[in-house]
Structures are given as C-alpha cells and as structure tokens.
Design a protein around this nucleic acid. Sequence first.
DNA 1: ACGGGGTGATACACATATGTCTCATGCGAG
DNA 2: CTCGCATGAGACATATGTGTATCACCCCGT
Lengths: 189, 189
Amino acid sequence: MRGKTVSSKSTILEAGFDLLSRNPGASLAEIAAHAGVGRATLHRHFTGRADLVAEMALVASSELNTAVDAAVQDAPTYAEGLRVAFRAMLPLAQRYMFLGTEPVEQDPRVAATYAAETAELYSDIDAAKAEGAFDTDVPTAWIAQAYENLLYASWAMVAAEEATPNQAADLAWRTLTTGLKPTEKHHDT
Amino acid sequence: MRGKTVSSKSTILEAGFDLLSRNPGASLAEIAAHAGVGRATLHRHFTGRADLVAEMALVASSELNTAVDAAVQDAPTYAEGLRVAFRAMLPLAQRYMFLGTEPVEQDPRVAATYAAETAELYSDIDAAKAEGAFDTDVPTAWIAQAYENLLYASWAMVAAEEATPNQAADLAWRTLTTGLKPTEKHHDT
DNA sequence: ACGGGGTGATACACATATGTCTCATGCGAG
DNA sequence: CTCGCATGAGACATATGTGTATCACCCCGT
C-alpha cells in the first residue's frame, strides 16, 4: 500500500507552508524536521527545493481554486464574483504569500497553472467591464494588477492586526471600484 | 586622500542596485565583479551582505526622499503632493523594489528610517483627509497600504511594458481616489 | 625618487545547504 | 509469523557563499 507515502508527502507539503510562510529562507532540513520526517524522506518525494516549492505552488493554486469556485458559485454577476473571490482568497493568503518571493515560475507546470489563472482573471475582469462594473477605458492588465496587489495590501492589514479579513476585503473592493474619496451622499446633522 | 575609497564604495553600491534588482540572490562575489572591484575590497567597505543591503536601503531612502521633496516642493495641496510623489517614485522603483524581499528591517538604522518615512506618509495622508481628498472613515493605515501596493502594481505594469510610467501613475491615482468604475459623466451619442 | 594607502589577486578557513548512500527498524499485509 | 516496504538516522561527498589574511602592485602626493 502506498498510503504512507501519500501521507508523508502531504505532511511535508503542509510543513512547508507552515514554515516557509514564516521564514522563506528555511532549509530543507528544517522543513523535514518540522514535518516530523527524516531529511532523506523529503528527498525521496522531492527532487530538491525547487521541486518542493513548485509542488507547493500547485497545491496552493488548487486550494485557492477550490475556495474561489465554492464562493463564486452563486454570484449573480462577474463583478460580485470578483468581490467574493477576493474575500475567499484573503484568509488563505497567509499560507501562500511567500510564494510571491520564490522563483516558482521557472517550473513549467507552475507557469502553465499561473498562465491559466491569469487568463481566467482577465476574462472575468472583461466580463465585469461588460457589466459596467469597470470602466472600459481602463486596461484589463491594470485592473488585474490592482486586484492582486490590493489582495496583498489586505493581507498586510490583517497581518498587522489593523483590520479583520472582511474589513480589509471591503476596503480593497471599495478602493478598486469607487476609490477612497469621501462619499458625497450623506453628511450628518 | 580618501577619494578612492568613497568612489569604490559608491561604485559597489551602484553595482548592488544593478545586480540585485535583476537577481535578488546574487552573491557578494558577483556584486564585486559587477562593480569591477575585488571581492576583498567589498569586504573592506561592508561587514557583510547584511551591511551592504542595509546601506543600500539607506541610499535608496535618501534618493527617494530627494526626488520626492523636489517634486512635492510646490504642490498646492497634500493630496496633490501625494500624487506627484507617486509619479516621482515610480521611475526609481525598479532600482529599489528588490529591497522589499530583503530582511533589511532588522538593521536599526534602516528600521528607524523606515519608521520615519511611514510616519511622514501617515501624516500626509491625514492632512489629505483633512483637505477632503480621502474619506475620514477609511483607516489611514489602509490608504498607506494601498498607496504602497499600487506603487508596486504600477511598477509591474511598467516592467511588463503594458503602460508608461505616467500612465501607470495616473491609473494608480485614479484607483486610489475615485476607483475604476465607469465615469458617469459623458456617454457619447 | 620615495613612501604609503588603497587595491586586486589569491589562498585559506569555515559554515551551511544540499544530494546520495547505507543500514537497521518498525509496521502492516499476506 | 515472516516478508517487504517505507522510513529514520547517520555518514559522506560536494557545492557555494562567506570572512580573513597575505602579498605584490600602482597611483598619489610629498
């Protein structure tokens, strides 16, 4: 039976998320120790650091997709889909943020996955544009960049304990759509 | 005369910016070679990698401050100051972005400088709030986070050659203030 | 011409990460 | 119970980055 193998592998991946998200420079020995397995076992499952990180990136993509799909499932519009997807990703962000500083894109599997996700984001943004949620004159690439970087900003807010995940997500969505200028509608008194 | 020393040191720092901005994992040997000096000379000026990167961070802060001060000099409002400061920082961003992935904040000098800059940014944002440029209900911390991360997004746009620096800066500023929703004003026909 | 400081080249010592191999062990399947 | 497989522990080899010391050299000002 291969049950033990699979368990070992996923345990190592999990340890990788735990450790690398806190210390991106952690060694394979530390990761193995944190997973409670021998360093040799880690090498039995992963060719090396690059392979491990690449597989982690694939796991992260998969988990994010699952979470996002579940959240988006019954979104009435594409714009609302982007909003709830943002909220769904934020709680997971802490586990995956460190991947942004890893050269994972050199791995062809990861590159393909990333490309597919970017393409989907672009198409969703274009659909939201068609709905009138975003200005057609604004480049889709910029909306995507802003979307991703405001996700990072939201994560930083949460990490600094200056906002709850939902508060941060709301702020980010407001920034993306209507900006941070004062609302002219109501003024008290 | 110490002229040679100073020249050597700044040459190494410059090489560090050139090299680390393209390859954050470059070794000290590579940096020295890229600077056209011996590895020993690098160690004569810097205790080690941490010291070098810390000094680079200080140089970056100084250069950014100079550029921003010059740009902000005759800004009529704080909001306009933030806008032109953004434009002034963007062209320099490529040289300094890699510092975001370095643990420079452990150096007390850098930490102090960063803290001072953050404090200044906060106070400028608060002043802009008082001018009515930003909603008072939005946390200053979020505006600062969004500001910085949209700067990163702008840099990415420019790096991907999907926008000129000024276009990217305009998009970022629009995002921050009024968002990316369609402008309701004019519709043709 | 002379002397000194900064420099490049080189050798050396050292730490750490990594990859491979071997071997004894434990645990589950048959 | 016994076999086989995955594992843990450890030894070993290697690569790389890093820090230091030495020495000859060259340019500078005296």
